[in-house]
Each structure stands twice: as C-alpha cells, then as structure tokens.
Design a protein around this nucleic acid. Structure first.
Lengths: 155, 155
DNA sequence: TATTGTTATACTCTATAACTATA
DNA sequence: TATAGTTATAGAGTATAACAATA
C-alpha cells in the first residue's frame, strides 16, 4: 500500500465547460449551497424556507392580506394558506378579521413570532456571513445588484 | 371612470427589506427567472433541465460511467438511472458495455444526440443573451465568478 | 467486502382547478 | 360578476434504502 493514492491518478476528470457556461446551471449550483445552509439554520427551529420567508414579510407589513403575501413571495394564494396555517398553528402570527370586508384576513406577527423572527435573522445572517466570507463587502453588494438585475430582466 | 387608476394609489406597497437582504432569497428569485427561461427552451424539445444537463456532460465526456455522471451533476446515482433511461430511450445517448468491468456502462452520445445538443446549446445561449442583455460582458463574467466563489465556500 | 447500476418508495415543494363566502 | 380564502389533487424533482450482479 505505502504512499499510493486510494484512487488512480487518472481519476474522474469530468469536463463540464458547456454546462458551466450557462448562467442557469452556475446559479443553480451556487443556490443549492446557499439554500442548504439556510435549511440547516431553519431546521433547528422546525421551519421551512417559504414559511420563514412569509414570517419576514408579515413581520415588516402588519395587517397585510394573504393575497398581498402571495404577491410578495411570488407564490400562489393556495400555497399561502398552508404556510399561514403553519405560522398560525405555532402562534407566530395571527389571522385577524377586518371590518368592512369579511373576506380578508389581516395577518399580524405575535410577540412570540417577532422574537423567533429576530433570533433567526441573526443566526441566518451569521451563517450567510460565514458563507460569503470569501467575498468583500463591495463584492457582496455587486452580487446582490447583479442578481436583482437578472431577476428584473424577466420577459 | 375617466382617468382614475384601476387600483387605489395606496396599492400594496409591501416591504421585503429583510427578506431581500438574504443572499439565499435574492438568489432564489433570480434563479427562478433564469430557470423558467431555460424550461421554455427545453420544453420545445421535450427535455427537462437535469436531462439536458446530463446530455451536456455526456457530450463532452465520452464513455463516462453513470457514477461519474452523478458526481458531475451532484445528484444521486439512482436519479441518474431515470435520466439516462430517458436519454437512451430517445436515442440521444447509448449505454455501452465495458471490457474488464461488466458492472459499468460507458455512456456515449449518438449522432442524433449531438445534433440536438448543439441545437439546444445555440438556442439556450440566445435566450441567455436576451436575459442578460442588461449586463455588460464584464458584468456577466463578474456574476459567474462570484457565483462560483459562493458555491466553493460550501462547508 | 465494496462498487455499479437498479428498483421501489417516499418526501418536499408548488401549481391547478373547483369550491365558499363575501363583496 | 369579481375577489379572498380554501380544499383536494396532481405533478415535478429528488433522495433513501434495499437489492442483484460483478469486482
């Protein structure tokens, strides 16, 4: 055995030039890394990504409707129901009746919800910082800016 | 009615500052745009994203094994089976027996597969160009570079 | 024993469509 | 008629785990 490598020198040297040339694929691979990291943070609090995203929006927009939430998250209203059910079931938000239009709910974060929200934001920011530790502040801003411009170029 | 807007001036003005502050969310939204665009291109050829990704890898790495393909795409070997079945069923690639190790297949793109591969690459590149038309060449390179650095910082 | 490919299964995420109650 | 929220269902997409053939 001695010093010989566990795998031959001609190990899998796979060429992915074409695939990596697509912004979609390169973005997917980077996104998976970032998403997995966020998963780890949220799993500790038994939350899914979309559920936490909804909590963020409700935290900053008291008394918004489910339809508004759907618009902000760019998901269907029917998907919002599941998410809001979950947040309400855990007493992180409340559904409040609105005078004048009994069809809609005013979503509002609870004290318990705000505490969890603030705690997770802090944890997630720390994880994000570690993940982006390789990038300078200027580079992080550049990345955010470029991503937003790509998003806004949607046909 | 006249010139009055169809929606009130105090229309849904949702604040998503915190959520947008996370690189994961901003990346997700940008990725969705790019992915949907690619979906449209591939749907015309009845291909899914991962299936086309596999075709790219096989096109550039003749006679690779399914395990190598799984490694390159960062997906499970069991998932590769489905993808390779689909590509083989459409005669875009072939599974070839290997002398010396009858457990493995050598995956190879067919002529038909190469023609489709080259055609889709061209179409996808055009779509990508349109999608990134807002970005200069330098900015595109910057985006690719930053994304790769984020990916490589995986814990 | 370890590895390649396979199968069966289950799980997550989200959309679609049909419904209700209100407006 | 139109809108908010709801329900049931279905479809991607992928992973997990157990397995057969081969090394």
């Amino acid at each position: 055995m001695a010093i010989s490598a566990s795998k031959p020198a001609t190990a899998p040297q796979i060429d992915d030039t074409t695939l990596r040339g697509f912004i979609g694929y390169t973005m997917k691979r980077a996104y998976m890394v970032v998403r997995n990291d966020m998963h780890r943070v949220l799993a500790e609090h038994d939350l899914r990504v979309t559920t936490f995203s909804a909590l963020c929006i409700i935290a900053e927009n008291s008394d918004l409707t489910q339809t508004q939430l759907a618009g902000a998250l760019k998901i269907e209203r029917s998907s919002v129901v599941v998410v809001v059910d979950e947040l309400e079931g855990r007493e992180l938000i409340s559904r409040n009746r609105v005078e004048g239009d009994r069809r809609t709910y005013a979503l509002r974060i609870t004290l318990k919800g705000r505490r969890l929200f603030e705690r997770i934001v802090e944890e997630a920011k720390q994880h994000e910082n570690a993940l982006l530790s390789d990038l300078s502040d200027a580079e992080r801003e550049t990345l955010f800016g470029l991503l937003k411009r790509v998003e806004n170029s949607a046909s």
